[in-house]
């Protein structure tokens, strides 16, 4: 439960920093090793429900696969065109395969990092913490929370609008033009009712004395303690160590082509 109890802002910043660092890596092994590390954290430390995890994670395999073959099919001119391997009857430069693998692994690693964050963080606490630790203005923080509250209502309304329109005798759209038109027909009532809700909510909030001023007290107080900094240091150390190791062994690459 250690990861669940971390300060949400620090957790988010750690994820963002890791992603930024990984963006510079173009070899396949470094992101893969880091991916394994995140999986270990997710399964053994955060103890996330594996079934749920796989459900969320599976689309990224498709995504990564798409990335892989696009990279091979549309790769830039390799620097060493002589080193090739044979794959599905085609000769492909090793370099292209490495880049392709690297970018696919990168997608999987990004996804694992994000899921580690999403599955261990209460999003409301995340916003409250952004306000308390990262100086997010209260007007934005509570405005976002108020808007986010509409989510279930909007979902229900979309279903209602769909059946209400069916009763009016609207048929399934066939052409692109009909599709765009239909999209507009759904979205305008949804937006209109959300805007009215937003106005009413704003009035209710202000009538409870909300001014957007930073001078307010907090029922739920978020703090940053040693354990939060330790988490950030640990994550970044692992990543930097992996990159350094890769560098020393000699398989590390960052972007070496031309922009």
């Amino acid at each position: 439960m250690y990861i669940h109890n971390l300060n949400p802002s620090i957790k988010a910043i750690t994820v963002i920093l890791s992603v930024l660092l990984l963006t510079m890596v173009f070899d396949p092994i470094t992101p893969f090793l880091f991916l394994v590390w995140i999986w270990i954290l997710t399964i053994f430390v955060a103890k996330v429900n594996i079934k749920k995890y796989l459900l969320y994670f599976s689309p990224f395999f498709i995504f990564a696969a798409g990335m892989f073959w696009t990279n091979i099919a549309f790769a830039n001119e390799p620097i060493n065109p002589t080193e090739v391997v044979s794959l599905f009857g085609n000769t492909i430069p090793i370099e292209d395969i490495q880049t392709a693998l690297s970018l696919s692994h990168r997608i999987l690693t990004f996804a694992s990092l994000s899921l580690l964050f999403l599955l261990t963080t209460n999003v409301v606490h995340f916003i409250l913490s952004l306000m308390q630790q990262c100086k997010l203005p209260p007007k934005l923080a509570y405005g976002i929370l108020a808007g986010y509250r509409f989510l279930p209502m909007i979902k229900d309304e979309l279903v209602l609008i769909k059946s209400a329109h069916r009763v009016r005798g609207i048929n399934r759209a066939k052409t692109l033009k009909e599709n765009v038109h239909q999209y507009k027909r759904f979205i305008v009532p949804l937006l209109a009712s959300s805007i009215r809700k937003a106005e009413r909510t704003a009035i209710a909030m202000e009538s409870k004395g909300f001014t957007g001023s930073r001078e307010r007290t907090f029922y739920r107080q978020f703090t940053v303690t040693t354990k939060d900094w330790l988490f950030m240091i640990m994550m970044l150390t692992v990543l930097v160590t992996l990159i350094t190791l890769a560098w020393q062994i000699g398989y590390f690459r960052w972007y070496t082509g031309e922009i």
């Binding site: 929370l145 108020a146 509250r149 809700k197 909510t201 209710a204 909030m205 004395g209 307010r216 029922y219």
Partner: peptide, 21 residues
């Protein structure tokens, strides 16, 4: 439906108290 900005009962009551300091 549109008088609240928080997600739980206690947080919503606290919201006004927080505004009041």
């Amino acid at each position: 439906e549109t008088q609240f900005c928080m997600f739980t009962v206690e947080d919503e009551i606290a919201f006004g108290l927080e505004n009041k300091g």
